[in-house]
């Protein structure tokens, strides 16, 4: 057990104040402002990060609960020079307008594609077992925890679908 947390591969000491959410820790203490605070109540998904390979709302967890964990934020997924496949697809499909929800959308979608690869079912899945299909309906259900107030949903789904089909 360590008192440190790995953020995008770099070790950091945990904050002293136990009230610090993982979101505030990443944004305020570490200056990684890619992760966004939307509602701060787990309703909008703008704060989605990937912890030990699993996507969660960073606003609804305390930083001190994550000693030894490995966190990936949008800054850890790609850079302007070397964007990830999903980042490229969001640009190609215009999967955003204001861009505020985008880091959360992309972190969420990155982990979601792994969930589909694991054949984890969703509420939209016909069958609970077997191989999961990447239909528009599946993507919409699996991404329902990420809101886009601009309503760029159609292009977000198209971007995710593109990457899913390429990697399938």
């Amino acid at each position: 057990m360590s008192d440190t947390i790995s953020i995008n591969g770099t070790q950091h000491s945990l904050p002293d104040d136990p009230r610090r959410s993982l979101l505030d820790f990443v944004r305020q203490d570490l200056g990684l402002t890619g992760t966004k605070k939307g509602c701060d109540h787990g309703q909008c998904g703008a704060c989605t990060v990937i912890v030990n390979g699993i996507r969660i709302n960073s606003c609804l967890t305390l930083a001190v609960m994550h000693d030894g964990d490995e966190v990936t934020t949008i800054e850890g997924l790609g850079t302007p020079e070397a964007p990830s496949e999903l980042q490229k697809a969001f640009v190609a499909h215009d999967g955003f307008q204001c861009g505020y929800c985008t880091p959360g959308q992309i972190c969420s979608a990155t982990a979601m594609l792994q969930e589909i690869a694991n054949n984890w079912p969703s509420d939209a899945s016909e069958s609970l077992e077997g191989e999961m299909n990447v239909t528009g309906e599946e993507i919409r259900e699996r991404m329902s925890g990420n809101l886009c107030r601009c309503g760029a949903y159609a292009n977000i789904v198209a971007a995710i679908r593109d990457v899913a089909e390429e990697s399938a």
Binding site: I54, R55, P121, D123, L128, S144, G145
Partner: peptide, 19 residues
Amino acid sequence: YPVLARAILSGATQQLRNK
């Protein structure tokens, strides 16, 4: 116990269910 899997999957979002 598909009724249990279905009930869980119908609640909240993947991010919340993961935690």
